[in-house]
Structures are given as C-alpha cells and as structure tokens.
C-alpha cells in the first residue's frame, strides 16, 4: 500500500448543456505533493476544482479528499480542503479581519486569532486588517482570498490561478509562504498560466485539454523527455537554408528560421551545412526546451507518450 491519496478522482464527468466540460478524469494527488494543473482556457480545471470543493455536482464518477467522498462525506471532505477561487469575490460589509473571523467560524473555529495574525503577517496584510474589503486593491483582495482558504489549516490546499493580476513582490512572498506550507506537510494543487511558475514549484504536473487529462508526469520527466532536443533560432544575412533542411524547420519568417533538432550533437554539422551552402549567419541562439515548449507540443498533440507515472 502506498500512502493515502490527498485527492483521488475516478472517471469524473460533467456536462453543461451540450458542452462536455469534464470527460472522464482520473487523477491521484499524493499527500505532501506540490501538484500542477495546467491547460488552456476552458480545459476544465476550475470545473474539476469546483467538484472537489462541492460547488459543482458531477454527472458521473467519484472524488475524494483525504479519503472522504466529496458527496457522501462532504463535511469531512470540506474540512480537509482549502480553496482559493479563480475569481476575486468578497463581502463588502466586512473588514479583512472580520472576514477571516467569520470564515473561521464557518469551520467551527471560535478562537483562531493567533493563526489569523500569522496568516495576515505572511501575506503582508497586517496593516490592512481593519480595512473594509471594498477599499482594498485587486491584488490585496486576492491575498485575502488566500488567507480565507487557510483559516482552518486544511491539509489540502487548491489554488486556482492565485497569481493572476498580482505584483512581483506578492508573487514571490506568496510562493515562499505556500512552499513553507508544503514543507510543513500540506498538499498543494496549483493551476496557473505562468509555466515557469509551475516548472519551478510543482513536482508533478497534469495537463488538461477539452475535459481530459492528456499528460501526467513529474515535471522533471516532462521536461526531460525533451532534454535531448534543442531549438535553434538563426537569422541569415546572406544566402538561404539548404533545401535538405526543410524537414527540420518549425517556422520561418523572412531570413529568420526556427529549427528543431533531435540531438544537441547535430548543431555543429547543421551550421557547417548552412555555411557550405553559402549562408551567412547574423544571429544565432540555441536553447533547450522548457515546460512551455512541452506544453505547446502537448496541446498540439505532437508529443507522444506523455501519459505515465
């Protein structure tokens, strides 16, 4: 037996009218993981999170949080889960501290001030504790959303694009805080459109598209699968690429070309061929693929065999 799963999703399906938002999702997030959920707009990430949070009811399939079924054992499942919603929402009647005290109370916690102070401190909200929610800037409101998700110290924390519209400083302090929570044993699930963020933080990544998981692996494997490949960008000041190279060209724009090679060892012979054919290279860059490259290719369906681990 492996350790208990923090989140387990089996054959989850959800339809909105004629749109199949989730089309049979199977997923397991282990306790203590820092897990990334990536995918283009409309892939179904928020829908999946909503089902885990009990905001949305699945048509088929099953989901559990720390072993508690989100439908039949919803009270325990919800105690285990903290969700930072994608949309900024707030109650304009209350101050930051009131908002957090109320949220604690909903979870049955009556004397939570020490922890609330700690969260406020870590999220840089201490000076705003008495301010009305209405008076906060967008980024500040988002910090409060993060704080609200943490009031009951949930073992599993899901953040749905928490850094959208947030300044660099908060982004870094937020990640420090979330990393620390992860080191303390909290399971973190993160959706983001900043791929470098996912690459830096997540141990494993699921890529979704059209309501399905189309790639699921460790971040290292996903990127490593392409490590042996290189991307060459070059601009010619004279001459042209030899026709024999057409197969390697990904895109061309005037005299600028992007080529993909299966092996870094092919770079040198390639450049030699270009020169032999009378080409003069004005600019050159050679890069290894990153998560963004993997993402783009996965979404195009050009990267095979990513469903594993």
């Amino acid at each position: 037996m492996t350790a208990q799963a923090a989140i387990r999703v089996e054959a989850l399906a959800k339809r909105f009218g004629s749109l199949q938002a989730l089309d049979g999702i199977d997923l397991e997030v282990r306790c203590g993981e820092f897990f990334g959920l990536l995918g283009p707009n409309g892939a179904g990430k928020t829908t999946l999170i909503s089902i885990l949070a009990g905001l949305c009811r699945p048509d088929a399939g099953r989901a559990t949080v720390m072993g508690h079924d989100v439908r039949t054992d919803y009270r325990n499942a919800r105690r285990m889960l903290g969700v930072v919603p994608q949309e900024i929402v707030f109650d304009p009647f209350f101050s930051v501290r009131e908002t957090l005290v109320i949220q604690s109370g909903y979870f049955g916690l009556r004397h939570n001030d020490a922890w609330i102070d700690e969260i406020l401190e870590h999220l840089g909200l201490s000076s705003k504790a008495g301010a009305n929610m209405r008076s906060l800037s967008g980024g500040m409101k988002r910090r409060v959303l993060v704080a609200q998700a943490l009031v009951h110290r949930p073992p599993v924390i899901i953040l749905d694009e928490p850094t959208a519209g947030v300044d660099v400083e908060l982004r870094q302090s937020l990640w420090r805080f979330i990393r620390r929570l992860n080191e303390d044993g909290h399971t973190i699930v993160l959706t983001t459109h900043y791929l470098e963020e996912a690459e830096a933080l997540c141990g494993r990544i699921a890529m979704m598209k059209g309501g399905r998981v189309i790639a699921l692996d460790t971040t290292a494997n996903l990127v490593g699968r392409m490590r042996d490949r290189v991307v060459v960008r070059l601009t010619l000041s004279a001459g042209a690429l030899p026709p024999a190279m057409a197969a390697r060209v990904v895109s061309s724009e005037g005299a600028s070309h992007v080529l993909r090679l299966p092996d870094p060892a092919e770079v040198e012979p390639l450049l030699a061929q270009v020169r032999e054919a009378g080409g003069q290279i004005a600019e050159l860059s050679v890069t290894q693929p990153d998560l963004e490259e993997v993402f783009v290719q996965t979404m195009r369906g050009t990267l095979a065999g990513t469903q594993s681990a």
Partner: peptide, 13 residues
C-alpha cells in the same frame, strides 16, 4: 457578487 462560495465551501449543513 459570488461571495456565496464562502458559505458553500465550509462544512455547514
């Protein structure tokens, strides 16, 4: 306003 989720996320019966 959408803030109904604050009541729907916790284990309130």
């Amino acid at each position: 306003t959408g803030n109904i989720i604050f009541m729907l996320l916790p284990p309130l019966s």
